[in-house]
Every structure is written in C-alpha cells, then in structure tokens.
Design a protein around this nucleic acid. Sequence first.
DNA 1: TGCGTAAAAGTACGATCGGTCGTAAACTGC
DNA 2: GCAGTTTACGACCGATCGTACTTTTACGCA
Lengths: 196, 196
Amino acid sequence: MSKGAATRDRIIERALRAASVDGLEGISLGKLASDVGMSKSGLFAHFASKEALQIDVLAAASDKFKEIVVEPAFQAARGEPRVRSLFQHWLKWERNESLPGGCVFMHAIAELDDRPGPARDALVDWQQQWLDALAKAVRISVNEGHFRTDVDAELFAFQQYGLVMAYYHARRLFNDPRAEERVQRAFDALVVAARA
Amino acid sequence: MSKGAATRDRIIERALRAASVDGLEGISLGKLASDVGMSKSGLFAHFASKEALQIDVLAAASDKFKEIVVEPAFQAARGEPRVRSLFQHWLKWERNESLPGGCVFMHAIAELDDRPGPARDALVDWQQQWLDALAKAVRISVNEGHFRTDVDAELFAFQQYGLVMAYYHARRLFNDPRAEERVQRAFDALVVAARA
DNA sequence: TGCGTAAAAGTACGATCGGTCGTAAACTGC
DNA sequence: GCAGTTTACGACCGATCGTACTTTTACGCA
C-alpha cells in the first residue's frame, strides 16, 4: 500500500470514530486533521469534498460491518442457527471498540433520511442489503424445515430490526442494565413463534 | 399572552420544525431568524444560549407529544383498548404536519446519547416517562384480565418501542409502502401473545 | 399624550467552517 | 542519484457560527 493510501485509511478510521459520536455532519475537517496529526489542507487533499469523505466513511463502516457481523455470522449452519448467529453478532456491533459513540448507521439514518443525495442513496442500499440478508436467512430456515412455511421472512427481519434498535437505545440512552436480557427474551420469542 | 411570549412561541415552533429535519445541532440561529422573519440578535434576545433554546425545543416537542399522542390515546378504555390506542396514536406522531422531518426525538436521541448535559437529561426523563406510561397500560391490561398475569410489562414496552422505530425507519429511509401493514401485524402478534 | 419598559434591530466580536492555491518536502521508479 | 510524482504544508478565502453590547422602535398603561 502506498503512503497516501495508508494516510487516507488512517483519516477515514478516525472520521468513522468521530461520526459514531457526532454523526457525519459532526465531522469537522479541522478537528479531524488535528486528531490525525496533520494540517487541514494536507488532509483535504485526499478527498474531493466533505461529502465525498462522508461517503467514504459510510463505505468504511459498511466494510467493517461485513467483517465484524456478516462474515462471522455466516459461519453458522444454515437455518435457525444462522438466524440466531446474525442476531447475536449484530448486537455486538455497537459495542465495537472502533465505534465509541455506537452504531454509526443510527446517526447516519437520522441525518440523511430527509437529505437526498449520493450519501443517502448509498446508505439506503447498504441497509437494504442487510435487511435482505436477514430475510434470506429466514427463508433458508423455512426451507430447512426449522421454521413454519407461513413465516413472513420480511416481517421477521422487520421485527428483528426493531429489537436491535430498541436495544441500542436502551443501552446508550437509558444505560438500562436489563437491555441485554430483554432483547434476548424478545428475540427468543420471535424465533420460537416461527418454529415448525 | 404578551408579545414577547408570542414571538418566543413562534420561534420555538419554527425551531421544532427545523430540528425535525436537521436535528437540534442543525438549528442555526441565523437561519432560524430569517425563517421567522426577524434579526438574529432580536431572536437571540429571547434565549440565554443556543443550548437553552434546544432544551426549550425539546420541551415543546414533549408538550406536543402529550397533546397529540398521550392525551387522545388515554381516552380509550382501560386495558387492551388503551394499549392499542397508545400504539396507533404513536404511529401517527411522525406524520404530524408540524414535524416535516419525522420524529424529533429520533434525531435528538442520536445526537444526545453521548453528550452529557441538561438537554440529554431532559430527553432521557421524557422518554422514560413515556416508556413507563406504556408499561403501566400493559399492567392495567393484566389487572383487567385482558392480558396474562405473566406478561412482562417492561418487555412489552421494549418490544413496542422497537416496532415503532422500525416503522419510522421503514417509512422515512426506505419509503417502504408495506411498513404500515408490517408494523400492524407485528404489534397484533405481540398483543395476541399477551392475551389471557 | 407621553413615559417607561419591553422587544427588536444593528453592529461587531473571535472562532470556526469547508475549500483553494502555490510551494516545499518526501517518496518512488529508473 | 536523479527525475518525476505523490504527499503534505502554510497562508488565505468568504461565509457563517454563537454571542455580546448598544441603540432604536414599538407597545402598554397612566
């Protein structure tokens, strides 16, 4: 890897941490530059615009999500074990040490849902891919005979999405020590209700 | 109402709309002043600081939530009807015409969950009150004999919270036309599972 | 009608914002 | 080791940020 690419990666890594705390808009080029220990202009030379940097940060978050959540979870056996594994790995995501402010997608969704543009488009695309992967794992569970044939895979993914968000909020906003137990019980109820 | 108080209300109303789209940090005093048709300094004279304005905006949002969601929903009969009514009114909240960018609390939670201070404290307080109200309605349903005695009221509120958030996201981010149907089916499953 | 107060405007501040430019230093391939 | 390119820097741009202080305008009441 060239020196420039390495610096760029360092910048984006830092920017991802910042975005996890303060959101994509909360990234300031000046602050970011001093964080990584370089001049603002030197930093800015790596990006066409702040918006381009934000999109790169989202892409880096998406890569990290695949690495930390999707790929390990897919090691689990097809069917219900994989559905459960996807959920468990997803819960761990916002606790990742490189995301001190929690799930960066939560911030990004709140910021971008009303702001059309390439950043929003990319975000919607990645989130949709994830929802599709969740639904597909449910459909496999049906095909494997683990889940009933009348289980609505998209509805299951929708419910799962809600539980994870409620969990994130319970942890980060309320510091609720029972959040973990609650989300586990709620998800278990979902799985049990889907079983053949 | 004095002229000053009326102006203040106009400002906060506008600021609430802005916060619904761009978040509390996204409110700019200059932009807000030109929106309400007055000078920045004239506007600023009504508030001790921007943070104070943000807290006033959150308080106004809380008042509006009580007016639009809580009070109408509590007209429903005790027990399951009220639980259902709370949910239905909650769904309508982010569609309210005074919140063009959706639920202002969603934005505020993402922004404030890592930023200690009076604004965060007030937000946590209001959200906790709401969760408590939801749980209390469930407990009443148990006492009325509508729900089983082993129903966990806090867990029910947790699940309900998740469904509403999934619904908001499905609508605002994905523009999913099936969001309404899905959230209704998911909530119905929750209620049916809780029935005596 | 006039006076005192409340409300709004005016002006200015230091800081920071995203972004540009010319140039120097550092790296890379020959 | 030199040439050419990549990388980073410092200075600077106009705009806007939140906030302070002073002055003018508008209102309410006697």
